[in-house]
């Protein structure tokens, strides 16, 4: 009896915490379907979560007021290019550090490990200065190129490859395959977990990337979603329903992918924590 009561108490407490925790998300989702005037006027009542009427008007408003499709495509292109480019160059480097012997390897590996400590915020100022001098602001390139090579990704690949059994690679090498072919044909197919981890971590980070794009974009042409929602919020007239609809559309693709590949997300995030 006592055991059952404790279980019930535990479950109710957890549910209460969860309800408070998810409230902001529920509020955003529900508010995005409500007539604009009611978003704020009903925010403090239970009507915030159970609307009397719902429509897609706010979503239509977003497309009427700004070029949402453009921001979405910008974000997809920038984030996609950083992620895919990063998978290629960082995995190659990780493999060269983990498996191949060459002069200067250990010194360069130490450099990569040291660079892991350096957050990109510490180099934003000189990079911004350089880019301004060269007149490269408002381009895709300046939002992509500096972020493809990533010390942390190299390190994740490096430590994963170190842990792979060598037998398969040795067999391929004996058969006369070069290092690159061995890597592409043998190592990559056996390294799905680390590729998934790096993909997820990179994509999530750059999908939400704000500081750098805010510094280097001044118009709509190459502006990604996080900067766009911050500007949209300050665009008169202030309509909270539209802002929430913008927010839902901005996060929906990521949430959908997350729900589909949840196990990989959780494993990937946890993996970044256990690699110390």
């Amino acid at each position: 009896m006592k055991h059952r009561a404790a279980r019930l108490l535990f479950f109710s407490a957890l549910t209460a915490v969860a309800a408070v925790y998810i409230a902001p998300v529920a509020f955003m989702l529900v508010g995005s379907f409500k007539p604009d005037a009611r978003v704020l006027s009903e925010a403090g009542s239970w009507r915030a979560f159970f609307p009397a009427e719902a429509s897609l008007q706010n979503y239509r408003d977003v497309f009427a007021r700004v070029d949402f499709t453009r921001y979405l495509l910008n974000s997809l292109w920038i984030t996609g290019a950083i992620t895919v480019g990063g998978l290629v160059v960082n995995s190659l480097a990780g493999y060269a550090f983990a498996r191949l012997r060459w002069r200067g390897r250990d010194r360069l590996l130490l450099l990569v490990i040291l660079l892991m400590i350096l957050p990109y915020e510490a180099i934003a100022v000189p990079l911004f200065y350089q880019v301004s001098l060269l007149g490269w602001r408002d381009t895709y390139l300046v939002q992509i190129l500096p972020f493809i090579a990533n010390a942390f990704s190299i390190y994740l690949f490096y430590s994963f490859f170190l842990g792979l059994p060598r037998d398969l690679e040795d067999a391929a090498r004996v058969d006369g395959a070069g290092a690159l072919r061995t890597f592409v044909e043998i190592v990559v197919p056996n390294s799905k977990p680390v590729f998934a981890t790096v993909t997820i971590v990179t994509f999530l980070f750059f999908w939400g990337f704000f500081l750098w794009p805010q510094l280097v974009t001044s118009g709509d042409r190459v502006r990604p979603l996080p900067v766009a929602i911050a500007t949209f919020q300050t665009l008169p007239p202030l309509r909270w329903g539209d802002i929430l609809a913008f927010g839902v559309m901005m996060v929906a693709p990521v949430v959908a992918v997350f729900l589909l590949f949840q196990r990989w997300f959780v494993r990937g995030i946890a993996a970044t924590g256990s690699k110390e």
Partner: peptide, 13 residues
């Protein structure tokens, strides 16, 4: 192969 494979990432870093 070693330096060649590491080159793009290391150079960019």
């Amino acid at each position: 192969a070693g330096p060649l494979m590491a080159l793009p990432a290391v150079l960019a870093l």
